[in-house]
Every structure is written in C-alpha cells, then in structure tokens.
C-alpha cells in the first residue's frame, strides 16, 4: 500500500523538490557578488608577500640573514646585501620575490626572525606580464595597488 502511494503520488520526488524549494528563500542565499563586494579574508590568510618597514623610522626591518631564501621550497627569494663598514652589519640592497612560483606555504614567514617578511591578506595578484610577477624590494614594501573593477 505504501509503495503504491509512493509510486503514484511521487512522494519521494516531491520531497526532494521541496528541499530544493526550501533553499530558494532570499535569506538563505549565500552567493557573494565578488568584484562588487569583497569578502573579508581571515586574519592569518597567506596572500601577497610584504617586506615590513619600521613604523617610526621607516627603515627596513630586514637584517639580510637569508633565512627566508633558505627556507623557501621553490627557492624564489633572492636577498643581496653589503657589509656596512661603520655598523659592521649587513645592509639590504635588493630583495627579489617571484610571486608566480610562490605557493604561499608560509615557510618564509615562519623562518623570518624579525617579522620583516610577512604574507598579507591581499589576494589579487594578477598582472599583464610574467615580469610583473617578479617583485622587487620597492613592490614588496609598498604592496600591490588596490584594483577597482568596473563593468
């Protein structure tokens, strides 16, 4: 009897349709209109790299210890420095970071002893050229420019 009801009244199919219908409620819509509304990413998000400057003196925090370059699995960080004869310390000259090969694993960030290199919440890293993906020291310090999409 139950089977006959099920066969002829299509209760099983209607049950599924009702579930589908229940989720149509506007309050249940979860779609994000991405370029118009930017979803906030988590605080710990591993995105674009940034080379931090000292907030007051705006000198670089990097001590050119080369630990990030050694930690990187893809070996995409190149740090060069020269010895300062007065302070007897290494001064950073160039810092190159190839974002196109980066997999954002966060190992460089973990390796940095002075929190100079940091992966930030920026995630829009598209460029028009491959060369644009190789970030120099200036790019790393300033970060990618915010993009406004229009249509």
């Amino acid at each position: 009897m139950e089977n006959i009801i099920k066969t002829f009244l299509l209760t099983d199919l209607l049950k599924g349709l009702w579930t589908t219908f229940k989720n149509q409620k506007p309050s249940k819509v979860v779609t994000e209109q991405y370029p118009l509304a930017r979803p906030p990413v988590a605080e710990r998000y591993r995105g674009a790299p940034r080379l931090n400057n000292h907030p007051e003196t705006s000198e670089t925090l990097c001590i050119s210890c080369n630990l990030c370059a050694l930690a990187c699995p893809e070996q995409l960080i190149v740090v060069t420095s020269e010895r300062n004869p007065e302070t007897k310390r290494k001064d950073l000259t160039t810092f190159t970071y190839d974002v196109s090969r980066c997999m954002f694993c966060g190992l460089c960030e973990d390796a940095c002893p002075v929190d100079a290199l940091e992966l930030t919440q920026d995630f829009e890293l598209a460029t028009f050229t491959r060369e644009g993906q190789i970030w120099d020291r200036q790019m790393l310090e300033e970060g990618p420019l915010p993009v406004r999409y229009t249509h």
Binding site: V41, R44, Y45
Partner: peptide, 9 residues
C-alpha cells in the same frame, strides 16, 4: 582559512 591561512592547500 581562519586556522592556518589557506583554504585548500
């Protein structure tokens, strides 16, 4: 994402 900073890998 909140725990380790990445969603998939």
């Amino acid at each position: 994402e909140k725990y380790c900073g990445a969603r998939l890998t």
